[in-house]
Design a protein around this nucleic acid. Structure first.
Lengths: 205, 205
DNA sequence: CACAATTATGAGCAATCACTCAGGTCTTGA
DNA sequence: TCAAGACCTGAGTGATTGCTCATAATTGTG
């Protein structure tokens, strides 16, 4: 425990209830502000104002602005993997069509509540090597899982499973980016149906 | 020609050769700087430095930073539509598989030289309503063309051509975002092959 | 109640950045 | 050759922003 350690972490851990409450309020406010103004224009003062606290308090819980972004991204990633693990733990459907449907729906649901925030998070992730690496890790894990699935499922007839797995994952991700950004968002059900159809016909050969 | 018009355009049009040359250098430098540092961190001073000119000169050719971004995006959009028009003017292949191959290759080639810049341009486009509208217009035109194609081609058997067209366009766009961002970019040929296969099998039903 | 630890405050600092302007240098044309 | 206009220069300005710190308020503990 070096005594001259840099102030990379803010103070100590919260001890009182109101502290943890303030932390939550900061994160919620940051999510709103970032989603609305983007990362660069989402100033820390604005976040504090929206959270109903002073700017000083904000910096007692986060060492800097980037740390807030990191925490938001971490939470999303953790939520996503938790949901995925839960699905993978149970029994999967037999047909690949139904398997794809499960995954596509999972992806859609995970991003349906705040697409703008999610878009921002993924855009700003490259700002930090650590975040970029973390996102990359999750993505690589998904690609690996998909490749296993493609290689072992009897219905699947694609040859280049490595490329196919990347293509499938990228296509599902795309669901997100087309559900949001557009001012005229596509209907979630229809998108799901068509995407599942496309993926299924593709891997069946 | 109102005399009190705001200084939205910088000075007059360039008259001498060196002026046009300087303009080009600014745009080239901006492309590099934006691609490397992103829009927010790509300062105008850095652009001027990279272009080998003074910051004052930069502001004789562009009224503000956003105008540089706008010009870069406009050029990309114009180049892209020009290439598309040229392809659409000539005779298209018979089979949809070959048609898709033509379009996918077009998209890949258009974005192969500077993927980072392109990513940045599309991310920052929402900063301006005008740019957003311009991008939206191009995209809508592509979707419309695709829908026509899907409805008139004998091999195509999808029912919901509206959704299918959007899905096809989004999938092709995806080629870009997966060719670049990743530190381990996918092989262009393989991606092209698999993507064409996926789209073809999808629309054939 | 006292008093120490924890949490909250917000004016202000230092740094950064887009952009200006007063004045230079170069090119052109007569 | 020599003005007049075109082009270039770069230190500086005003505004913004991330963040600090001295101080105050609140809470837990005996």
């Amino acid at each position: 425990m070096p005594s001259d350690q840099r102030r990379i972490q803010p103070r100590k851990q919260p001890r009182q209830v109101r502290a943890e409450l303030t932390r939550q309020r900061i994160l919620t406010a940051a999510a709103h502000v970032f989603a609305e103004h983007g990362y660069a224009a989402g100033t820390t003062n604005r976040i504090a104002e929206r959270a109903g606290i002073s700017i000083g308090s904000l910096y007692q819980y986060f060492p800097n602005k980037d740390a807030i972004l990191a925490e938001l991204l971490t939470r999303h990633l953790d939520d996503g993997t938790a949901a995925a693990v839960q699905v993978l733990t149970g029994p999967l459907p037999e047909s690949i069509e139904d398997v794809f449907r499960v995954f596509v729906r999972l992806a859609v649901e995970a991003h349906l509540d705040d697409p703008h925030l999610l878009r921002m998070l993924l855009e700003e992730a490259p700002r930090s090597n650590e975040l970029l690496e973390r996102v990359g890790k999750v993505k690589r894990a998904m690609v690996e899982h998909t490749r296993d699935l493609l290689e072992n499922h009897p219905e699947v007839r694609v040859a280049d499973t490595a490329t196919a797995a990347r293509l499938v994952i990228a296509t599902v991700e795309l669901a997100v980016h087309d559900l949001l950004a557009e001012p005229d968002p596509i209907d979630a059900r229809r998108l799901e149906d068509e995407m599942v159809a496309m993926l299924t016909r593709y891997v069946r050969g």
